[in-house]
Design a protein around this nucleic acid. Sequence first.
DNA 1: CTTGTTTATCGTCGATTTACGATTGCAAAG
DNA 2: CTTTGCAATCGTAAATCGACGATAAACAAG
Lengths: 112, 112
Amino acid sequence: MATHKRQAFTDQEQELAQVAKALGHPARVAIVRLLAQRRACVCGELVLELPLSQSTVSQHLKELKAAGLVQGDVDGPRVCYCLSPTGWARARHLLGALLAELPAPPEAHCAC
Amino acid sequence: MATHKRQAFTDQEQELAQVAKALGHPARVAIVRLLAQRRACVCGELVLELPLSQSTVSQHLKELKAAGLVQGDVDGPRVCYCLSPTGWARARHLLGALLAELPAPPEAHCAC
DNA sequence: CTTGTTTATCGTCGATTTACGATTGCAAAG
DNA sequence: CTTTGCAATCGTAAATCGACGATAAACAAG
């Protein structure tokens, strides 16, 4: 990511950024939704549902897996992708923590 | 982003991806937290709190503003940055909608 | 009008991302 | 063992990101 100064940020900030980045592409959001609805499970099914090539879908799955949001279990010649319960628990926690820090909607403005 | 096929995804998916992408960098998460805590408001203060140059902070602010999460009100020679209530309401809604679609933690696994 | 302060933009660089086709790898089936 | 089918990886090209210094722009004060 071009000379990041990672050491300067909190672990939580980096983790949250990692999760957010993984969701920072429409295709990956769509994949997560497909997996959530159980409408698709193996890579080939996802390819059929998405306007992307097999290799591209595979790459997106790899990124989601790297972020811990998805896990892939080998099932014979194919791979069954599922949402990772622990990964999403972590994501919920991180997102919730950030949202909890925000001021309530009516007064987000600063004093300036 | 190299030849995106944006038209193939839902507006919600694209909007969520945009918000997530904006939070997909530790520096931007840190900026949001600083603004939330009201510890800093104008660009110069943020620069002091972060290990980044002024131009880099300005760019991150620009991206957060483009995602609708932050708004900047001109205040004389400086600019007062605040979290955007409507932007965060939207973000909450989009994130909440996605999380609501996910199966409950214990059974995120697919049937395979 | 000039000066000083603050922020935005420009230009650049290297690293990363996104996408694809082509190839390789792997497991079940014949 | 060979074939078949699915998934992962490789290689590549174009676009974007992240960072910085340098410069421009905007505004208040003098």
